[in-house]
Write a protein that binds this DNA or RNA. Structure first.
Lengths: 112, 112
DNA sequence: CGTTGATACCAATCACTCCTATGCATAGAA
DNA sequence: TTCTATGCATAGGAGTGATTGGTATCAACG
């Protein structure tokens, strides 16, 4: 599809949620999962096997920065970058557009 | 993820849009694509290579019925079944839930 | 008539996202 | 000390949907 495809619609949704969760505070992986579950009212229960590859990709793309903290049980704390903030804003825009388009087809919610 | 995972979030979105488009009237593939583009305000431009596998899967699952019409240039007209209507309602429910959960995390729209 | 473009159907293949399963390691509680 | 929660990470696979390309009909135009 062009413009918004059903794939785009989803693509990065998980990444977007991660970025958004990090935009409030720097977190390490495990805490991020809990925060996400909490903020979504228990609906999103992201698995570690889902999260870490996403975090690594985000880091590779420069959207988040990571640093090790603590001794013994090391924690890798992730912090959103300015670039990440921009990307988040862009993804949120896409999400709104996609949501609107789907709802148009569904004949559901009206938007002003 | 449990409950709604980011996959569920998307899963069948294309199928849901197809079912919804067929819920108004029986259509053949090509017309369905045009209708979908029209209803979405031009945002969804589904390719035939995307649509037909979906239609075949929906038919296989008994969610739509198909019949050949016309001579020479044959058209395969798809019609939603009762089972399809139920599935559509279920998918729409999932969509609403997923939408709400994402918006909760994004800290965006409020729902009553 | 031949070419072009719109209509119409379909299969094969591939890319991407995310899940499942698993492994390893540390800290605290029982 | 054994169990559970915490914490990071990779490998493999399932599912969705995009891309590509192939076939065929029909109308319009020259």
């Amino acid at each position: 599809m062009i413009g918004i495809n059903a794939k785009e619609l989803v693509k990065g949704t998980a990444g977007m949620l991660v970025l958004r969760t990090l935009s409030g505070e720097a977190l390490h992986g495990y805490a991020l999962i809990q925060k996400l579950r909490e903020k979504s009212g228990g609906l999103f229960d992201m698995k570690e096997g889902t999260l870490y590859p996403i975090l690594h990709a985000l880091e590779y793309e420069g959207l988040v920065e990571a640093s090790w903290q603590g001794e013994g049980r090391r924690k890798r704390v992730y912090r959103i970058t300015q670039s990440g903030q921009k990307q988040l804003a862009s993804l949120q825009g896409e999400w709104e557009r996609a949501k609107r388009a789907v709802d148009l087809v569904l004949g559901g919610a009206q938007y002003a």
